[in-house]
Design a protein around this nucleic acid. Sequence first.
DNA 1: GTTGGCATGTAACTGGTTACATGATTAG
DNA 2: CTAATCATGTAACCAGTTACATGCCAAC
Lengths: 200, 200
Amino acid sequence: MKARSSSFFVLGMLRLGTTSGYAIKKATDISMRYFWPTSLAQVYPELGRLEREGMVVRRDDSQGNRSRAAYEVSEEGRAALLEWLRGSEEKPLRVRDEGMLRLYFADALPVAERIRLVQRLRERNGATGAELREEVLPLAEAFAEESGIRFPAITARFGADLYAFAEEWFAKLERELAEESDPEDSGPGDQPSHSGASNP
Amino acid sequence: MKARSSSFFVLGMLRLGTTSGYAIKKATDISMRYFWPTSLAQVYPELGRLEREGMVVRRDDSQGNRSRAAYEVSEEGRAALLEWLRGSEEKPLRVRDEGMLRLYFADALPVAERIRLVQRLRERNGATGAELREEVLPLAEAFAEESGIRFPAITARFGADLYAFAEEWFAKLERELAEESDPEDSGPGDQPSHSGASNP
DNA sequence: GTTGGCATGTAACTGGTTACATGATTAG
DNA sequence: CTAATCATGTAACCAGTTACATGCCAAC
């Protein structure tokens, strides 16, 4: 079996209780899209591959005239998943993000627009954080309660905390840039020294 | 001109003072690889496209027998970059990471191995954080000092802080899991209730 | 009766990586 | 003298996305 992370993604979702391709996509959109977005056009061929490799077994689960497949992870599939989970060398978390690229080049913008850019970046992180906190975390925690499966909730929590951190970080940068460009606006009696190597 | 982020990446790097394709790749490896990894096989064709579109001007910069091209951003190129930097709707920062996938499915592992997985994830974030803190940040700050261009350093700082946060978060999770599975190991007089919805 | 969700799949395209191919110059 | 770095590019491949194509069923 070829070691594609997408295969393990599907395998893992099946082991978590989802049975059909459609269900995998739906469940992912709710809970895992922040760290592993996917599409149906990826899930279906992957299920086919896994079946051919004997990692999953397909069974018909049609309801009346509406066809549906139900997949089950085979013994080999379980073993492969476990082996992958144990896999030792962890590649670094790599982000590839257009927003960060904009930040990197922000010197090209006039000061006021730099601040607006930073503000937008703060807002988008805030929005993602809120989604995770308010929508996916509660669901993941409910799932943990009823099933005893805790790591989906832990993952959601990490996402919520991470994006909250990013939001705060950008909020702080925003304040600092605003203070620099507009010193009179700082608190009463404040000497707005933009000097010392303050945080960002 | 087609709105590919890779075009703006190259455009931006040129505006930052790098002149050749090779130099762009090298500079990226040092400073921006954490948020925008790239390869020569992407940079060269991109430079070609940008030239055909009139965004950059290629000039020969060969040193003796060693050929080298030097690109300069045209007026149109500068305008396009600026427009892109201003571009309003900021797409959410999307991560796609195998490590997080492992975390999500970690319930399938026996407890001791879950902890080891979390430990590995902590370590990889720590390693990336250290690289950013010790290698890229100093360089970016030196560059800021000599050029007045600050946002590369700000970006590096964000990366350093972000990965440090992630490291701490996983360290905390690691401690909590260890305490749960091995209650005698907790501090003297500690009632190791694994109950209350503590952080992760 | 028509919109939206359930359900499955394929085709075309895009963006990116690794490997290949070549050659000059410099540092050890 | 040979390994590393500078320098440019192409070809083959891979993973992922969007768009297309089809049809059932429930809700409004």
